[in-house]
Amino acid sequence: MKNFFVFLLILSFHLASAQTEKLFFYIENDSLLGVKNQNGKIIISPKPSWNSGAYYNNREIKSEIFNIDFKDNLFAYYDRKGEFIFQTFMTSEGPDGFQEGYIRYRENDKSGLYSDKGKKITLAKYDWISPINFGFATFCNGCYFDTTKNEEHAPLEGGTWGFVSKDGLEILPTDKRNHPKDFETKDHRFIPYQFQYNDKEKQILDFFEKRKDKITQINGFSCKEKTLYFEIFHKPTEYDNFYRIKTFELCDSYLNGADENYDAFKNFKVSADGKNYYVLYIDLVNYKEYSEYVERKIPVDTWIKQNLNKLK
């Protein structure tokens, strides 16, 4: 029995250590980039990087998976054990970023989805797949980019098209609307509403619904439709202890979801206890050795009051 309690004590110590382990990027010889923990243990050995300055020395890694651009493995994501996970999907504007907690990846010239927790959501089995938007993605097989058309972004043509949920399940559209927020496709079928909430989360969203008119008065709309949704796409974790909410504008036959990395004042955070509500914007901070984009928070009601006064 004594040995059993000693075992439990050791096990709990290791579990606590694993949960609180901090990771940091570090740079050697000006251009070699690696990862180590708070005790100096090397997690990823330093290697040449095309962009080591962007990581800067001792920058803490506050996510479950993270990107490093090694010269011999560009646009790659790793887990907190230092294991390579996947190669990022490339767009015409560069490597893909996370949307609603999901990112596209490439494998054997096919595409799929990973979550920001490092979970493979779908196999890489699609010729093309869109970012997650409003809880689902569009995919096609047998399609191609028609570069013969004189357009800035070559359109996708042909192929078999479908939809996949954020759980990796292919969605069969319905012939009638079963929920007010079911999304109507171009061929007038309906994608089932993909979000579910408990009572606490419903109360959080109700806070924004009550302020919807004021928020839209400040931000306006990017399309003629005047329909705005608020949805929770991230729940509190060890690395980001907030609920994250984004806005979606219904624009004809598509939903324009706010970009979580660029769209100022269209993304929100709520503290884990549901008591503090913030609107977000990104600020470029220039330090002596490096520059970085920093997320800033303003209490929602303070922001509304300040901006409505400006509109008077």
Rank of each mutant, 00 (worst) to 15 (best):
L9A: 14
L11P: 12
S12G: 04
A18Y: 09
Q19N: 08
Q19C: 07
Q38C: 07
G40R: 08
I43F: 04
A54D: 11
R59G: 01
E60G: 04
I65H: 05
N67S: 09
F70I: 08
N73I: 07
Y78V: 04
D79I: 11
E83H: 07
F84W: 14
T91A: 10
I103C: 06
Y105W: 07
E107T: 05
N108F: 09
K110C: 09
S111A: 12
G112V: 06
L113D: 07
Y114F: 15
S115G: 10
K120W: 01
I121L: 07
A124V: 13
K125F: 07
D127V: 03
F134A: 07
G142A: 09
N150R: 12
E152S: 09
A154C: 08
A154E: 04
L156E: 04
T160Q: 12
L169D: 12
P173R: 06
D175G: 09
K176E: 08
N178G: 08
P180E: 10
D182V: 05
D182I: 07
F183K: 06
Y193I: 00
Q194P: 13
F195P: 00
Y197Q: 01
D206F: 00
F208W: 03
F208P: 02
F208Q: 02
R211L: 00
D213N: 14
K214Q: 13
I218K: 06
N219R: 14
S222I: 10
S222T: 10
F230G: 02
H234Y: 11
Y239Q: 07
N241R: 08
K246A: 06
K246F: 05
C251G: 04
N256I: 02
A264T: 05
N267Q: 10
V270Y: 00
V270M: 02
S271F: 01
Y277L: 03
S291V: 06
E292L: 12
Y293V: 09
V294Y: 06
E295R: 13
E295G: 13
V300E: 00
V300K: 01
W303S: 09
N309I: 03
K310V: 11
